[in-house]
Design a protein around this nucleic acid. Structure first.
Lengths: 215, 215
DNA sequence: GTCTATAGCTTGATAGAC
DNA sequence: GTCTATCAAGCTATAGAC
């Protein structure tokens, strides 16, 4: 059942088990007993290594946030000066996509966990804003260069919409699978991303382009 | 603190308190003690009227789902035969907007609760699919009329993206408020909706129009 | 339909031996 | 750093008087 690789440290086993279970059941839906059991370690070790449960949760979030943000900042910095908005959106979204699809099951759980947190007021400040507002601001500044005629407000709203589609996608709830009668699969993130970029780029242009929606 | 209107029945007081607290802390983040205390009734009455906690949660969801879906179906049925995709999107999204903005604090909590559930695998089948797939299918069928050249798959994906932006908006987490330095306000749903319609319509046209993304 | 009281269990956290 | 044992508090759910 659990992840018992003897290669892994106790800390990493606890973090991996937490990541997977938090993503499936949420912060309050999992007990420390279940986490440590899934990790194959004693209950007391969770508190010893991470302190209170909330700090363990934040440690799970922080473990991958830096690596993710470094990849996104790198992609944004690598853009040509005249990059179109579709390329800016791709630079922001592709690193997370790549890690979720090809980074192993840990990154997959991480993406699903972030997607749930994104719509929860409880974790907005302590997780979303504190961990991701830096790269978000960088994305917005870079988007302003690609859409110089837009009111700033519209770019912020477009980013808000982008975030919604991105989080809905990373959540992988499989609702669209049954709704579409099997035509779509939530797990096929590569295909979804290929559809999402032109969808979002058209939205950005409509809202933030030369003829954008007023003020 | 709680809602103690003597006009309300015990059932409604429990449902109102549950709605508000579930929206803020999630299913596992609230105890029946807290709910009944907030409602101003005795603990045992929650179980007496609604059975197990999970059934109370589902009762909260179902209480408003029928009214919401009736309004959405009505708006979709009222569309002209040649309605453009922006009008179809408006028909689907506006009823929920109207209730969240002008339906009172109960509808506001309800919208925030649904937004959190939407990205949670735990409630996908038992809530989202069972309560909302009917109207979702109706929206998709109506959208096919407005975008007759599209592959069905692309319309499903576009709906998936629409749902993400809609749920991110109804969540009202206020992250965009601080990120934008006060330029945007999560609570200003009327303004957001006015931006969201052209944003989404452009996305639908790009993905599902005559030159839509292949297959 | 409402109240009191409580059963039976799980929770997060820690003390102390090794 | 790891283990066993446990505490105090909270939890859902129910039994039984009114």
């Amino acid at each position: 059942m659990g992840v018992h690789d003897s290669e892994l440290s106790t800390q990493d086993r606890i973090l991996n088990a937490s990541e997977s279970l938090f993503a499936e059941f949420g912060f309050d839906g999992v007990s420390l007993r279940r986490i440590t059991q899934h990790a194959g370690v004693e209950l007391a070790l969770a508190n010893y290594h991470f302190g209170p449960k909330k700090d363990l949760f934040l440690a799970v979030i922080r473990r991958r946030a830096d690596e993710l943000n470094r990849a996104r900042v790198g992609a944004l910095d690598a853009l040509e000066p005249d990059a179109e908005v579709a390329e800016v959106i791709d630079a922001f979204t592709r690193p997370f996509l790549e890690k979720s699809v090809r980074g192993g099951s840990g990154w997959k759980s991480y993406a699903r966990l972030i997607a749930q947190i994104a719509n929860s007021p409880r974790w907005t400040e302590v997780v979303m804003a504190s961990q991701f507002d830096g790269v978000a601001t960088k994305f917005i500044e870079r988007t302003k260069l690609a859409l110089p005629h837009s009111a700033d407000r519209n770019i912020y709203w477009a980013f808000h919409f982008l975030l919604g589609t991105m989080m809905m996608t990373f959540a992988e709830t499989e609702r669209i699978d049954s709704l579409s009668g099997g035509r779509c699969r939530s797990s096929d993130l590569d295909t979804i991303h290929a559809k999402m970029i032109p969808f979002l780029a058209a939205g950005f242009l409509a809202l933030c382009g030369p003829d954008g929606v007023g003020g």
